[in-house]
Design a binder for these strands. Structure first.
Length: 241
DNA sequence: GCGGTCAAGCCGTGTC
DNA sequence: GACACGGCTTGACCGC
């Protein structure tokens, strides 16, 4: 189990959640005016196995997932593009506007909060990845619908998954090569030592005679092919030890 | 689609 | 126990 998975456990519930999300958990806001894509998994898909804690875990992110960064950027641009009340010379209204703006900043900060997929979503994605590491558009759409996510999120998840699988494999290969290198280095060391020992033996004992007086008949027979080879080269080799 | 990167969130550890 | 900090995981984006 990877460390990151632990975020789906009972630990750390509510930790790190921005004030606004915690407030939402305590006092659920009225229904949003805009359509909200929710991450929480319906019982139709996963039955009633989702615990209340898991539901609470997924719910803060549910609204979040409906925002893309481009939306956030757009929000910021929209806010920044407005003429301020200070410029109009109305201090009190400017202060009020400032407060509203701060609230909007908090809201967009909450929207920036990172989506964390639920255990069930991750599990299903993993299953699909095991079957196919890439998806065609239709599979992507189906999976997105099944998980209540956007197709783009599915696409990104698969891209990241492929990249990280590849990285992991590279690390495994690297480790394998490192071990091979170690083994070969050790073998090389052993062979060099053996060679030195053999050389030591060779020079410590008197060298055998270079030439042997062989009977004349054997000079004509090649020991490997057992054919008569009266050539001078064979003769020379057969005499040389 | 891939590689690189950013940033949110979680966890373990050390310090007070 | 609370807090700070560093490391890690992972969703998302960008440029090619």
């Amino acid at each position: 189990m990877e460390r990151g998975d632990s975020c789906d456990t009972d630990l750390s519930l509510g930790l790190g959640l921005p004030t606004i999300i915690r407030q939402q958990q305590l006092n659920p806001p009225p229904p949003p005016l805009e359509p909200s894509l929710t991450l929480s998994l319906s019982e139709e898909i996963y039955g009633s196995t989702t615990t209340p804690k898991e539901a609470r875990l997924s719910s803060p992110h549910s609204t979040i997932s409906s925002f893309s960064t481009s939306n956030i950027k757009k929000e910021k641009l929209d806010v920044g593009g407005e003429e301020t009340e200070v410029e109009r010379g109305s201090a009190s209204r400017a202060r009020e506007r400032e407060r509203e703006r701060e609230e909007e900043d908090e809201a967009s900060a909450a929207a920036r909060k990172k989506l964390r997929l639920t255990k069930e979503q991750s599990a299903l994605l993993e299953d699909r990845f095991k079957e196919h590491s890439t998806l065609n558009p239709k599979q992507k759409q189906t999976l997105a619908k099944q998980l209540n996510l956007r197709a783009r999120q599915i696409e990104v998840w698969f891209q990241n998954r492929r990249a990280r699988t590849k990285l992991k494999q590279t690390e495994v290969d690297c480790e394998f090569l490192r071990r091979c290198c170690e083994t070969l280095t050790e073998e090389n060391r052993r062979l060099l030592k053996e060679l030195q020992e053999l050389k030591a033996i060779k020079f410590s004992t008197p060298p055998p005679p270079l030439f042997m007086q062989l009977p004349a008949a054997t000079l004509m027979v090649c020991p490997s092919c057992e054919r008569g080879t009266p050539s001078s080269s064979f003769l020379g080799r057969s005499l040389l030890l």
